[in-house]
């Protein structure tokens, strides 16, 4: 905005924003700080935000208590595979729904939109029965099949594809590109931020998912990191320092992905919902 603000007002705005940000981040600071303390030190009051001695050994101990390596590997495996399938099939479908003409297009798209509004719990049971019949309970394939074809990805990418002018695609077709060529050479390169957004959203969602793995994975070798954290909370409920160390560890990959793509992410979400 163009108007000049008085310096007092500017300072007030900064103070307010800093306070808000600090309050928002405080739980995370608590988490990191507690992860370096002994369990007996966690609840001292007044709070020592910086531990007297840094108990880095917490981060070693957690590996000995639970199968953290297996859980981490499984989480990476599922997050990467599901994200890839989502990215490929969703961008294809989004192109079909935004740039191709075929009978029943709008009806099919409506079916996609409708399922976004349906809470997952509504169809969780039939999915489970289906997986039971396919003998896929306690396999990674179950979660991969169930989470790879969400309507959300199609919806998100379609919002971006709509903004690409049809004239541009027409020009490409006249130049002799097939429909697939137009998609690969024109649309894909133009929508990199959109795809980055989907990659991050999908990765974060799968990585953080708790309910899916909890329902489907019973044997320890299949479990994911979120189940690991919860397992830890249940088994060592008084080991506050260790619980926080596990939690910090589970957050690190998401933090890395978030910081790396933060620009794309923030812009991508902001424009996906509303423009089109």
């Amino acid at each position: 905005m163009i108007e000049k603000r008085s310096p007092v007002k500017t300072v007030l705005i900064y103070v307010m924003l800093i306070v808000l940000t600090v309050v928002t981040l405080l739980p995370l600071v608590w988490m990191v700080s507690s992860s370096l303390k002994l369990s007996t030190e966690v609840f001292t009051f007044p709070i020592k935000w910086i531990p007297e001695t840094f108990h880095w050994e917490n981060y070693v101990t957690i590996w000995e208590k639970i199968n953290l390596a297996t859980y981490t590997f499984n989480s990476f495996k599922l997050s990467i595979i599901i994200t890839l399938i989502q990215l490929i099939t969703s961008s294809f479908a989004a192109y079909g729904f935004s740039k191709c003409q075929f009978p029943g297009r709008n009806a099919l798209f409506l079916a996609y939109i409708a399922t976004i509004a349906i809470p997952w719990q509504v169809y969780m049971l039939p999915q489970y029965i289906m997986m039971q019949r396919m003998h896929l309970i306690d396999t990674h394939l179950a979660i991969i099949l169930l989470q790879s074809f969400t309507a959300f990805g199609v919806f998100l990418l379609r919002q971006f594809y709509i903004s690409i002018p049809d004239e541009l695609l027409e020009a490409a077709r006249i130049d002799g590109l097939s429909e697939y060529g137009t998609f690969a050479r024109i649309v894909m390169p133009l929508t990199k931020p959109a795809m980055a957004t989907l990659v991050i959203m999908s990765f974060v969602t799968v990585w953080n998912d708790y309910m899916g793995p909890m329902i489907y994975f019973t044997s320890d070798r299949n479990k994911t990191i979120q189940l690991g954290v919860q397992l830890f909370v249940g088994q060592y409920s008084a080991e506050y320092g260790l619980i926080m160390a596990t939690s910090v560890f589970a957050l690190i990959p998401v933090l890395v992905v978030f910081l790396a793509f933060q620009r794309f992410f923030v812009e991508g979400i902001a424009s996906s919902g509303l423009k089109g």
């Binding site: 739980p27 988490m31 974060v204 953080n208 919860q230 998401v254």
Partner: peptide, 11 residues
């Protein structure tokens, strides 16, 4: 983007 399970333990 923080996992609910991890952040739940903090809260």
């Amino acid at each position: 983007v923080a996992s609910m399970i991890a952040i739940g333990a903090v809260w």
